[in-house]
């Protein structure tokens, strides 16, 4: 109960701080604008929260829906298809999807099909089935779709893509909250948390907030070290290995 109250308080404080002039009828925020991957990082929850301002209740009875999309940095994916060659399964065909989100989480207050038409959803790339790469290495749109579906399947299996059609939790008539799981293995870089407000099948308001995911501490330094000065890194690993090997040989002898 405690964190829930804390978020509520945070959300309310946030609301109080937002000047009325810049606010549309949607305000949102994130529990943290930076996620740090440390040596014992096993995933965390990001909380997206927000409020819908109702203006004198003129639309109190037309349904309002909230959709939250958290997108990771664009990455290039190589999708390979296996074929059977002489009884063995070998990668035979490859399509590169340029500019797919490295992470994608969608939460909505109702099943997407009830919120808006496929056209609208596709325009905003809302929903796993409407995801598209910026560019494809293949020539046929049919092939593009097959490989994109495969990519979504693989990423869903890796828990990097997910959709929760009841993921938006309303704390009151206007306050909502979404828990976004950020598992280990998410790519580093800039993320965006997009919040859409739908009414009568159309986006009436949207907000986008940046978010950074980065390795910090030792991991950051090791990764940077391995890429900046690979020679020194490689030699250090070997020396370290030899040192440990030597120590173990000393332990041997004492036995």
């Amino acid at each position: 109960m405690k964190p829930r109250l804390a978020w509520l308080g945070f959300a309310l404080a946030f609301l109080a701080l937002v000047p009325a002039a810049t606010a549309a009828n949607l305000v949102s925020g994130l529990s943290q604008d930076q996620i740090e991957i440390t040596s014992n990082y096993t995933g965390t929850d990001l909380v997206v929260f927000g409020a819908i301002e109702s203006r004198g209740g003129e639309s109190a009875d037309s349904p309002r829906d909230v959709v939250v999309v958290v997108r990771g940095p664009d990455i290039d994916m190589n999708i390979r298809k296996k074929e059977r060659v002489a009884g063995l399964w070998i990668n035979r065909h490859e399509v590169t999807l340029f500019g797919m989100p490295g992470y994608y989480y969608l939460a909505s207050s109702r099943p997407l099909g009830q919120i808006a038409s496929p056209d609208v959803l596709a325009r905003y790339q809302i929903g796993l089935s409407y995801l598209q790469a910026a560019r494809y290495s293949s020539a046929s749109p049919k092939e593009d779709r097959v490989y994109t579906e495969a990519a979504v399947r693989e990423e869903t299996k890796a828990k990097l893509y997910a959709a929760a059609e009841d993921g938006v939790e309303f704390l009151s008539y206007s306050l909502f909250r979404v828990r976004v799981p950020v598992p280990a293995g998410v790519p580093r870089g800039q993320y965006t948390a997009e919040v859409y407000l739908f009414q009568n099948g159309n986006v009436v308001s949207a907000q986008s907030t940046p978010l950074f995911v980065d390795q910090i501490g030792l991991e950051r330094r090791l990764y940077g070290f391995a890429h900046r000065s690979p020679w020194v890194y490689g030699i250090s690993v070997v020396l370290l290995a030899l040192l440990l090997g030597w120590i173990s040989s000393l332990v041997f002898q004492r036995r």
Partner: peptide
Amino acid sequence: VVTPEDLFSLRVG
């Protein structure tokens, strides 16, 4: 040899 669950595989970068 066994037919893979998913014929497609993904490699990032």
